[in-house]
């Protein structure tokens, strides 16, 4: 085996070993144990997540950011659209009452960033959810069933990739008017595609594994094989890709605002604030830095939390 020129190949695997790409089977694919296993799985995962310091700190920080975004504007002295006629593009200062400065219209940047956080965090939440539920299920079913259905489902994904997104957005706006829920719909419509492709790829590889075939032979229902065996074993790439999706959709939302579908003045979002700040980054860097720091901290937290979740949910180490 060590003299092989090809690093590995399936047939030469040691007997009983798992083939390449090969996560491990759950010890006993017991069709009866579903409900009980599910419950203890969640509790077990939570216990293990709690032991991960970085993940817990991240989780707490995320909750703090979300809370501040929701409650902060109620406490702050400035309104979302309130213009301070004496402070256009004012740098951060304690005296003026604008702790993080103002924008070009003399509006308090901290207030606007917190309002923007509500939009961006909710967009991120919805996009991750859509990408998780639709993308993962779609990809897993496509890969597991395979054959004709796989082909049809994947050609549909190809079509969705190829349609000109901008016109899709503009038409959504024409048909349904301006509505914040359309942001979610437009972003949701495209954000599950990558995830579906990735999960399908993993499923194609996983479904030939012995543990899946064993489950099959034991008469486990297809739906259960997909949800209990395939998806948990693809969880690593799934979680990482979700954390990668978040910054993408937060910035995508600012493109929707450009088209007139996203948030409209005076409301704002992190993506919009960042693209506004880019114009002024040399003269008024705080306008770029403030929303960017909020975004970056959120991303770091999501990342550590994601890693922790992955470890906690990993069926192999259970």
């Amino acid at each position: 085996m060590t003299t092989d020129t090809t690093p590995y190949s399936g047939p030469r695997m040691p007997a009983g070993g798992t083939p390449p790409g090969g996560p491990n089977p759950p010890a006993e694919p017991d069709p009866e144990a579903g409900a009980v296993a599910g419950e203890s799985l969640t509790r077990d995962a939570w216990r293990r997540l709690k032991q991960n310091r970085a993940a817990m700190v991240s989780l707490i920080l995320l909750i703090v950011i979300a809370t501040v975004c929701v409650l902060g504007p109620l406490v702050l002295p400035w309104g979302l659209a309130e213009v301070d006629w004496n402070a256009f593009t004012a740098p951060p200062s304690l005296e003026g009452g604008h702790f993080l400065g103002t924008d070009a219209n003399g509006r308090d940047l901290l207030t606007r960033t917190l309002y923007g956080g509500r939009v961006s965090l909710s967009v991120a939440l919805v996009a991750s959810f859509v990408s998780l539920v639709i993308g993962v299920l779609y990809g897993a079913i496509s890969g597991y069933v395979g054959g004709r259905l796989d082909n049809l489902m994947m050609r549909f994904v190809d079509i969705m990739y190829s349609l000109p997104f901008m016109f899709l957005v503009i038409l959504l706006m024409v048909v349904f008017g301006r509505n914040i829920f359309l942001i979610y719909a437009a972003i949701g419509a495209v954000e599950w595609l990558d995830m579906a492709r990735i999960v399908r790829g993993q499923t194609l590889s996983l479904k030939r594994r012995e543990f899946v075939e064993a489950a099959h032979a034991l008469g486990v229902k297809d739906s259960k094989i997909v949800t209990r065996h395939l998806i948990p074993n693809a969880i690593g790439p799934v979680i990482v890709y979700v954390t990668l999706t978040v910054p993408k959709v937060i910035l995508l939302e600012s493109f929707l605002s450009f088209l007139g579908l996203g948030v409209q003045e005076p409301l704002t979002s992190w993506g919009v604030l960042i693209s506004e700040g880019t114009d002024t980054m040399q003269g008024a860097p705080w306008m770029l830095l403030v929303p960017s720091i909020f975004l970056a901290v959120t991303l770091f937290c999501l990342n550590f939390l994601g890693d922790g979740l992955r470890d906690a949910l990993d069926p192999k180490t259970r």
Binding site: M1, M13, P14, G17, T18, P19, P20, G21, G22, P23, N24, P25, G236, P237, I239, V240, Y241, T243, L244, R310, D314, K316, T317
Partner: peptide, 26 residues
Amino acid sequence: AYIARMMRASMIEVLGSHYIRTARAK
């Protein structure tokens, strides 16, 4: 950044697998 993140995650996945442990054991 994307590729590094994804590669790290799937490497961790694979390195923890039974199959790799077998290879190490050999």
